[in-house]
Design a protein around this nucleic acid. Structure first.
Lengths: 236, 236
DNA sequence: TAGATTGTTAATCGATTAACAATC
DNA sequence: TAGATTGTTAATCGATTAACAATC
């Protein structure tokens, strides 16, 4: 036995692998829904849109959850990945900025089934405070502190206009939020130790435009970006 | 002079660089709006949330658009990057699936200013066909072919429920769309030569949950993912 | 035992970074 | 000329991939 505890999690999982674990989790859920009990790395890789060598390498960072000659037990592997990601319990999240996008996020049913629960919707505009979206009341942004402490919220979503994003981020950090998903265009800066991920619709379209333009120019090297960079659907 | 034409674009730009060009473009637009005419790589890097060595390396793939000892002309560099990305003219796009998210996308004003114009909103549900969103009428999905050919659309956005996504993708490809931005969870498969990018809200949250969990576990190696993987806001 | 498939190794490829010569 | 800053080199780091020994 190793000198470390058996409930060991000290192995470092590469960031590229971390970003794919949720993809594998979703693929496994899909297989389970089809009533498939066992799968090979090849089958799971196809379902997840990656190649099987990469899948096996990724899974090897978590442990040995497969059986040589047989494959993986879908339910068992699903649980192990969920545990590794940390979505065996629900994470409370707050959404700030209940405009068009905030509405869409609040109504997104996929959050609940994937480990997240929207505990509060906050907006600075008093005109929105009457509203109830997806069963949750829109509250003043000033309620942030109370909400975060009441529900022990660690994750915040920014869906405000870009001009408000940095102020909102500062306030989120002040009240103890340590992970932020930012939908507002532009860079927000946060202290060390606070995680930020960014979703930017125009940037995604511009990346597509670049490749589209190369194709239009008849460039023989214009490749399918789906096979090359982040979480895209293409296989290879 | 090189043996190739002077209107040369044959240099291959790494995918990681391509994904950052839109970030630089946005940062330059921000500087221009502040009335700043010239900036150093250090200043632009800060505004874009990257380090200056990476910025200069990235820009070097486009050409030599700076002046040693001085820096970059904001307006000139902005134009050069816009040209490289291909957003000096507008790209017509169609959005398929006008639910909550489709509405939010249709209303997103940022598209227009960043090189995209929504020329059609399509939905399979006849109940939605009466509606006009952001000045654009919602039309039957069957109109896809007509719309795409009328406006020479190359880019399609999928905002349908996950069950419809693959069928919609197949149809988009059939009518000649070669770039797809997919908001529906799950993998869609497309033929070689069609570019797909994917935005998945739950996956982003799950990546944050993973890091949040590591922090909670008191893991000393738990790092800020903002500094590590794709287009995130953190500087370093 | 024979066939199948994992988990791991090692080679390759691509991205990042620091340092600095070139040059304004 | 002296100071500033780019563009590029080269070293390092991390991610991907093919191949295969281990083993069910």
């Amino acid at each position: 036995m190793s000198p470390r505890s058996s409930h060991e999690t000290a192995r470092v999982i590469p960031e590229a692998t971390v970003a794919r674990l949720p993809v594998y989790l979703r693929a496994l859920t899909g297989l389970a829904e089809q009533g498939i009990a066992t799968c090979s790395s090849e089958e799971l890789a196809t379902a997840a849109g990656v190649n099987s060598a990469k899948l096996r390498k990724d899974l090897s960072y978590l442990g040995s959850y497969g059986t040589r000659g047989v494959g993986y037990d879908v339910e068992y592997l699903r649980y192990q990945i969920a545990r590794e990601i940390g979505v065996t319990h629900e994470w409370p999240v707050v959404i700030v900025g209940i405009g068009n996008l905030g509405h869409a996020l609040a109504n997104y049913s996929g959050f609940r089934s994937r480990g997240f629960r929207v505990v509060a919707l906050l907006d600075a505009d008093p005109a929105r405070h009457a509203e109830i979206v997806a069963g949750v009341a829109v509250r003043p942004f000033a309620d942030l502190d109370a909400v975060v402490h009441e529900h022990s919220v660690a994750i915040g979503v920014i869906a405000t206009p870009p001009t408000a994003a940095q102020d909102v981020a500062d306030r989120l950090v002040e009240v103890g939020i340590t992970s932020i998903l930012n939908f507002a265009p532009g860079v927000i800066s946060v202290p060390e130790g606070v995680a930020v991920r960014k979703v930017d619709l125009s940037i995604e379209l511009q990346i597509l435009a670049y490749h589209e333009q190369r194709k239009a120019a008849g460039d023989p090297d214009a490749v399918d970006p789906a096979v090359t960079f982040p979480a895209a659907g293409g296989d290879k």
